[in-house]
Amino acid sequence: MTLRVQILKEKYSQSLGLPFKELLPETAIKQVISELKIKYKKRLFDPLITLWAFLSQVLDTDKTCHNAVSKIIAHLAESEVEIPSTDTSAYCQPRARLPEKLLEKLFNFSAQSLEEKVTTEYLWCGRNVKIIDGSTVSMPDTVENQKEYPQPSTQKE
């Protein structure tokens, strides 16, 4: 990982509150929610708060739900909103309901937004460079996940 990426990761993982609120604007999330026709009730842990907390949780060295809820509480302390309980179930349940399609569309939105900001000075010989880093994702080994994302044939069951 480059030094710049490492610095940004540390900055956002150690920040109080929900730093992704600045990076992934509410308007973009609401637009994708509208496009996907996602219905939700206006509660504290709506898709906006849940998504921002989830992204912070993924990057943080302490990936616990308790830490994610603490970041939500820190975010809410800035406004005049009733501070929720530290019980994690109120966050974990809506996090589990975040549609994969929402995350995919927001990833594409972020990539497109970044692409639009690239000027010729950042190109290599006037060209875009595409890099594949081979990152992996970890998820629970459930029957549903095995159907959707089967193991490679070279891997033991």
Rank of each mutant, 00 (worst) to 15 (best):
F54N: 02
F54H: 03
L55T: 06
S56K: 11
L59W: 01
D60F: 01
T61S: 07
D62P: 01
K63N: 09
K63I: 10
T64M: 01
T64S: 15
H66N: 04
N67F: 02
A68E: 02
A68C: 04
A68P: 03
V69P: 00
K71T: 04
K71D: 02
I73R: 06
A74D: 12
A74C: 06
H75N: 04
A77V: 08
E78S: 13
S79E: 06
E80L: 13
E80S: 15
E80R: 14
E82C: 06
E82H: 02
E82L: 12
I83E: 00
P84Q: 03
S85Y: 02
S85H: 09
T86P: 02
D87W: 05
D87Y: 13
T88C: 14
T88H: 07
S89N: 06
A90F: 05
A90Y: 05
C92A: 15
C92G: 07
Q93V: 10
Q93R: 11
Q93K: 13
R95L: 00
R97L: 05
E100R: 12
E100N: 08
E100F: 12
K101W: 02
L102T: 03
L103P: 07
E104D: 13
L106K: 09
F107R: 12
F107H: 14
N108K: 11
S110P: 03
S110G: 07
Q112N: 12
S113T: 15
E115I: 10
E116R: 08
K117D: 09
K117H: 08
K117L: 15
K117P: 04
V118R: 04
V118D: 08
T119K: 09
W124G: 04
R127N: 14
N128L: 12
N128G: 00
K130N: 11
K130Y: 15
I132H: 09
S135K: 07
S135F: 09
T136R: 00
T136F: 03
V137K: 09
V137D: 05
S138G: 00
M139I: 15
P140C: 14
P140M: 14
D141V: 06
T142K: 00
T142E: 01
T142G: 10
V143L: 06
N145M: 03
N145S: 07
N145Y: 04
Q146N: 14
K147T: 15
K147L: 12
E148C: 05
E148T: 11
Y149Q: 08
P150C: 14
Q151S: 11
P152S: 09
P152K: 04
S153F: 15
S153C: 06
Q155M: 14
